[in-house]
């Protein structure tokens, strides 16, 4: 199995300058890799740093130490030290991300929120909207909501828009931060099917799932994040 993402010896801490510069270590010595066609799950209690790891892999958090090697456009890139422009290219082409919460933009319809990543990758807007419609229908989002901006949607509705936005593209790596947290059983099953389809398509998935059922259904491998606790490394 090809290995599209390798994390080695990554460490992360927050320095709180507004609180006399205290340093809050988050994780250290993070090393693992994920495989194409597999869903790897980050396990461990809240506060263990699961979300932080995902955010570092997406370039959303800075990395203090270590490397994140990504297979991007026929080459290998160290995301931990990549320029902002490279990170943007990786996000556009290689790594997709379903965040816990949808960040809405005023006046942009749910349909366009979902279609946007495809348009950014150069797909025709109408074709992208077609795919977005299909995906939103599959996630049982009422059609009357499609043309509305998601700002006023319920948590579950927003989450489905978010999932559709993450799943619509063919990114070879997909990061999932609790995508099923606020979904009912029916839609949870839809997400499980979507993940299975991604696996079948050779996508490498890395996710955080607090929901046992979902985790059982999708996980090929669980990485225990407590192993990366900074412990004695803490300053």
């Amino acid at each position: 199995m090809p290995t599209p993402l390798v994390v080695s010896d990554v460490a992360k801490s927050f320095t709180m300058h507004l609180r006399d510069g205290i340093k809050l270590p988050v994780v250290a010595g993070v090393s693992f890799s994920i495989k194409a066609g597999e869903c790897t799950v980050l396990g461990g209690p809240s506060g263990a740093g699961k979300s932080s790891i995902l955010k570092m892999l997406y370039g959303n958090y800075a990395v203090d130490e270590g490397q994140i090697i990504v297979k991007h456009e026929d080459g290998l890139v160290d995301l931990a030290h990549a320029s902002p422009r490279t990170v943007l290219a990786i996000r556009r082409q290689t790594i997709g991300y379903v965040s816990q919460f949808l960040r809405t933009v005023p006046r942009v319809s749910a349909l366009d929120v979902v279609a946007e990543p495809l348009v950014e990758r150069g797909e025709e807007r109408e074709a992208a909207r077609g795919k977005a419609r299909a995906l939103l229908a599959r996630l049982n989002l009422p059609e009357k909501l499609w043309a509305l901006p998601p700002a006023t949607f319920s948590g579950g509705e927003q989450q489905r828009v978010n999932i559709a936005r993450g799943f619509i593209t063919g990114h070879p790596i997909l990061l999932l931060d609790e995508p099923t947290a606020s979904l009912d059983a029916t839609n949870r099953d839809v997400v499980i099917e979507l993940i299975a389809a991604k696996k079948a398509a050779g996508v490498a998935l890395l996710g955080i799932f607090h929901d046992h059922e979902v985790r059982e259904a999708v996980a090929d491998r669980v990485i225990d994040v407590t192993a990366f606790a900074p412990g004695k490394l803490a300053a």
């Binding site: 927050f14 320095t15 300058h17 955010k55 959303n60 958090y61 800075a62």
Partner: peptide, 16 residues
Amino acid sequence: GLTDRVLDDPRAPYTQ
């Protein structure tokens, strides 16, 4: 840096 990185993980004292 990336806008979301600077805003979500601000590092410089002033940015924080």
